[in-house]
């Protein structure tokens, strides 16, 4: 069964996000830091008179904070709060069929927690990730 996916690139890896969980895709402006907030929270940004919490998606997935300034982000509302998940680039929106992950593939970092399936847009494999699992504190981490 196929579904509409947003295909993006995070930490050099192609990922797909189910479009039903995406509210919008934005260019981030200035990000106001939130000291002492959970790890990988970059801060707060304003989008159309609304405050969103900016998440360093690559940092969450790989465990290493990304150095590049956040520019593009996928906005999603999770449990009543709006989050902006920073992505390197947005590739495509496509109707794709999700395939189960091969149990033989061992994913590193938090990829294993966030990724649930695989899609293949234009021949390249993209991991289907669940944005809610990327909110710091929501990860059921296996590794620190």
């Amino acid at each position: 069964m196929s579904e509409l996916f947003l295909v993006a690139r995070i930490a050099g890896q192609a990922v797909a996000v189910a479009s039903r969980s995406v509210e919008s895709v934005v260019d981030l402006g200035e990000v106001t830091p939130a000291p002492l907030a959970a790890r990988h929270v970059l801060g707060l940004a304003t989008l159309r008179s609304r405050i969103v919490t900016v998440i360093d998606t690559a940092g969450t997935l790989t465990g290493e904070a990304s150095a590049a300034p956040p520019r593009r982000a996928i906005v999603s509302a999770i449990e009543g709060h709006h989050y902006a998940f920073v992505v390197d680039a947005l590739d495509d929106v496509a109707e794709l069929a999700a395939q189960p992950l091969d149990p033989g593939i061992a994913l590193s970092g938090h990829w294993a927690d966030a990724a649930s399936a695989l899609v293949e847009p234009a021949g390249e494999a993209a991991l289907v990730i669940d944005l809610a699992a990327l909110v710091p504190g929501n990860l059921h981490s296996r590794c620190n």
């Binding site: 939130a34 959970a38 405050i51 919490t53 998440i55 989050y83």
Partner: peptide, 15 residues
């Protein structure tokens, strides 16, 4: 504010 921000324990909210 969102839970990962409130978890700092020093914020009452955002505006």
């Amino acid at each position: 504010a969102a839970p990962p921000v409130m978890s700092a324990g020093i914020y009452a909210g955002q505006a």
